[in-house]
Amino acid sequence: MSLCHSFHHQFYGSSRNIGLRHAFDILKRKGLASPSTQGNFYQMLSEALLHVAEAHFRDLWCVVAGIDSLEKLRDYSPEQLLNFANIILDKYASTNALDEHRMHPRDRQDDIIIEAIMFNRDILDFINLDDAIRVGDVGRIRDMLPRLIFRYIGGNHTNYSTELLELIQGLEREWPDDLVLFMLRFCWVANPTGKPNAFLPFDEVMEHNIRDTKETFETLGPSTSWEYLKKTTASIPMRRKIKDHVEDQINSFHRGKSHTDPDKEDDITTLQASYARSKIHHYNPRRQLPKEDQLEDYNAKGSDLHTLAKVINSWLEKRITKRATTEDWTYGYESSEQDNADIDMQASM
């Protein structure tokens, strides 16, 4: 969720560039102008990000292969398709590609293709992390931590950058191997169903537990007590399985549970057509944007050595504190003569 909000903050943009606002206006998506933690904003935003990303990369396949329809990719061999994929990654979704375009004199820079390449590069991190969580690949999640730190530092998300610095310090320097293994196996993601591609972050699993305890399997009646609630809560995993089995057999909620957005393909096609008309992945030296309309590069800002060192030193200063080496047995009050007499008596015994 924090990563989604970071992308919204960085790439929302204005009506004059190709940021998320441009895409939301084309798709007529309402309620995505301001980040929120309430309702279904996160679900709507993450879905929109994936749609925009797919439209970007579909357009790139057409640009690199020199075709006007993805169907024509069937005419190419696997080796040619792999070569196209490498070109897309190297020339249109990497930091090296950004640096090449930024090396041009200012009057020869194409701000539109720079923003497109920056979005392509950064959204791959979001897709990678989302997929790693879903399949339960904690190794990939661990490998993503440094890149997430760069993003959070560049976006001035100090709480998240501090949290990740603490996590990396523990994983790489302080925690013993058995604690690291325990954290990776049992504290990051969980699979409440046991089905493939059904892992969830632990905090989301707890939200599901709270929902089932308070709403889905709510305990009611005059005999309700904390002891009874403890007993019913322990049975929730089995009651979920019974509920899902009944729904599957009767099929009363099957449509509602498995239904996907029928407009996904239409949305992606609409965005791809817009990107193709605007030629966002074609270099045009005449496309310069005003300073206020240019999108910031969070990864570049966060990975700057001076900025990175400043954040790490600030974190380190707060982490190192003076600790008392004496013990105070008065517990905050002055001992009386009777207390001292009792202590002397216990000592003599």
Rank of each mutant, 00 (worst) to 15 (best):
S36L: 10
T162C: 09
Q272P: 03
Q338I: 13
Q288S: 15
M118G: 05
L200W: 11
S36A: 15
G302A: 06
D137E: 08
Q38P: 01
L20S: 00
A116P: 01
P222W: 06
H245M: 14
R74S: 14
P78V: 08
N313C: 08
S274C: 04
M44P: 02
H282L: 13
S46H: 03
N159S: 14
Q346R: 08
N299Q: 14
F199Y: 12
I268D: 04
K91Q: 13
G19H: 00
M349H: 10
L27E: 06
C62W: 03
S314L: 09
F182G: 03
T162L: 10
Y152P: 00
R147F: 08
L200M: 14
M349W: 14
F7K: 02
H281G: 05
D131Y: 12
P222M: 05
H282T: 15
R287E: 06
G170T: 01
R151G: 00
N313F: 07
F253Y: 10
Q109G: 05
L179G: 01
F84G: 02
D297P: 06
L164Q: 04
M118Y: 00
L148G: 00
E166S: 13
E227F: 09
F84I: 08
Y152I: 00
P196V: 03
P78W: 05
F253I: 11
M118W: 02
V205I: 15
A198F: 11
I123C: 06
N17Y: 05
D261W: 11
L179V: 07
M144H: 05
W175H: 00
Y298C: 03
D342R: 12
A93K: 02
A48P: 03
T232V: 15
A85S: 13
K291V: 13
P196F: 02
E79Y: 07
T95W: 05
G19R: 00
T325N: 14
M183W: 01
A93I: 01
E317A: 10
D111E: 06
S258W: 08
D137T: 06
E163M: 11
L148Y: 00
L289M: 07
K257T: 10
E265Q: 10
R255E: 12
K241L: 10
I242Q: 13
I67E: 12
K322R: 15
I123G: 07
K291E: 12
A276D: 04
I18L: 05
E115F: 04
W61C: 08
F202R: 12
F253Q: 14
T270E: 07
R147T: 07
A23L: 03
A309F: 03
P105F: 06
H5E: 09
S69W: 04
V135R: 11
E207N: 14
L124Q: 15
N128A: 11
K301F: 09
E54C: 04
L148I: 03
L81W: 00
S252H: 15
S161I: 04
Q288D: 09
N156G: 04
R287P: 12
K310V: 03
G19T: 03
S15P: 01
Q169P: 01
D177C: 07
I343F: 14
S34D: 12
G39I: 10
S46V: 01
H245R: 15
Q249G: 09
R211S: 12
H56I: 01
Q10Y: 00
H281F: 15
I117G: 01
K241M: 09
K91E: 13
Y283C: 05
D203R: 12
